[in-house]
């Protein structure tokens, strides 16, 4: 209870200062609307059903893009992590492509895929791909060789070795990669929506700017923040469930 109050303290203070600044310093609401106005706008946005529609289309894009990106990165990462030769073949290519921010792919993605969902899927997939890939590779490579020796000693085939030793051993880092990947996918979806489509939260806040609806911009931003929080909390829960064996293992 006290813990909950304590973690609410900072947001409350920010909200209060913000409200006070707007009221007493006579800031134009077009530049910075007070939180009370943002809240009213947010409820209006919600009531009209527009918020739900936008949030759903944003989530849909994240889901498809992330599934594509992670779906390609996971098997490739496992393969590269487990086989040195495969790693040597693909690593140079990946090292060159990885530093290119997904945003730099926007022009090409529009040339290749036109407007609408396909370029946004592409950008989101690209954004999620690299963190998942790098963490999966590192996860597999970091599995202690002693576990492989134990499994071989007990007569494990290479399929068993992979499924019951390499994969679970790499799981903490794979899940960390997935969590980072979702975060990047979320960044990419907003960028993609600002450019390539005409719905979704990213599109909505850019549209609101056209009309100087600062309250709606902020309402949209806060929605993005809340959805991100929910997704990340969900990932953390999943992490805890799957990694019961891992919690606090470093100190053990």
């Amino acid at each position: 209870m006290i813990r909950a109050l304590r973690s609410l303290a900072a947001p409350l203070v920010v909200l209060l200062c913000w409200e006070a600044t707007c009221r007493f310093a006579h800031v134009s609401p077009a530049i910075l609307p007070p939180p009370s106005q943002v809240a009213r706008k947010w409820i209006e946005y919600l009531r009209g059903g527009e918020l739900a529609a936008d949030a759903l289309s944003t989530l849909f894009r994240v889901a498809v893009g992330f599934a594509l990106g992670a779906g390609l990165a996971l098997p490739l990462g496992l393969w590269m992590g487990a086989r040195d030769r495969v790693y040597t073949v693909f690593n140079p290519l990946i090292q060159v492509l990885r530093p290119i921010p997904p945003i730099a792919w926007i022009p090409l993605s529009i040339l290749w895929f036109g407007l609408g969902n396909p370029p946004s899927f592409f950008l989101i997939a690209l954004g999620a791909f690299f963190p998942v890939l790098m963490n999966t590779i590192a996860g597999v490579r970091n599995v202690d060789a002693i576990y492989l020796r134990v499994a071989q000693n007990l007569g494990a085939s290479s399929a068993t070795l992979f499924r019951r030793v390499l994969l679970p051993g790499a799981m903490p880092q794979i899940l960390a990669g997935l969590r980072i990947g979702v975060g990047v996918a979320f960044i990419c979806v907003i960028v993609a929506e600002m450019i390539a489509v005409n719905n979704g939260l990213g599109y909505r806040i850019l549209e609101a700017r056209e009309y100087f609806w600062s309250d709606k911009i902020i309402a949209g931003m806060i929605t993005i923040g809340l959805i991100g929080l929910v997704i990340d909390t969900g990932m953390a829960r999943l992490n805890d469930r799957l990694l019961r064996w891992h919690r606090g293992i470093e100190s053990a």
Binding site: Y147, V150, R164, I249
Partner: peptide, 28 residues
């Protein structure tokens, strides 16, 4: 090659940390 008819017990235990005690024992 290594084989289960020469089962090894390692110095640093080397239990699979992601398996319970029973699962570790059942592995072989």
């Amino acid at each position: 090659a290594p084989g289960p008819e020469r089962a090894m017990v390692f110095q640093e235990y080397a239990l699979f940390p992601w398996m319970t005690v029973s699962e570790n024992i059942a592995f072989g």
